[in-house]
Write a protein that binds this DNA or RNA. Structure first.
Length: 107
DNA sequence: AGCGTGACGTAGG
DNA sequence: TCCTACGCCACGC
């Protein structure tokens, strides 16, 4: 079992945190980084989400910028997908942004 | 080993 | 509220 219990990678820590975000709530990249014990590596969080393996069940769409904006340019497919996923969970997305004050996850 | 990069963040105008 | 500039820092080439 030693070979099984390797230290989780930073990506895995991030995914773990993201997986803990409840439906209908959102968190910022910086928030996720801090909660994963990674300090200010907000950018690394975005990268980690880009490395998500196929068939995952990570709610990546609940992670947005600290100012409430979707991290993708409007018009891109990824942005639209994220927007719809959030709306399906009851998160109000207007002009590619979310009111953090109302939907930010507070553990 | 050095350098550009980026699903970011904060400050200032 | 929108836009610009600068800071951050591990990763990958």
């Amino acid at each position: 079992m030693d070979e099984f219990d390797k230290e989780p990678t930073k990506e895995q820590k991030i995914w773990q945190v993201v997986a803990a975000i409840p439906q209908g709530k959102v968190a910022s990249y910086g928030q996720v980084a801090a909660m994963a014990g990674l300090g200010r590596q907000a950018r690394f969080v975005g990268r980690a989400l880009g490395k998500l393996p196929a068939g995952h069940s990570i709610p990546w769409h609940r992670v947005i910028r600290s100012n409430g904006q979707i991290a993708f340019p409007e018009g891109t497919e990824t942005c639209q997908l994220q927007t719809e996923k959030l709306r399906l969970e009851g998160v109000d997305v207007y002009k590619g942004r979310v009111k953090m004050k109302d939907f930010q996850w507070q553990p």
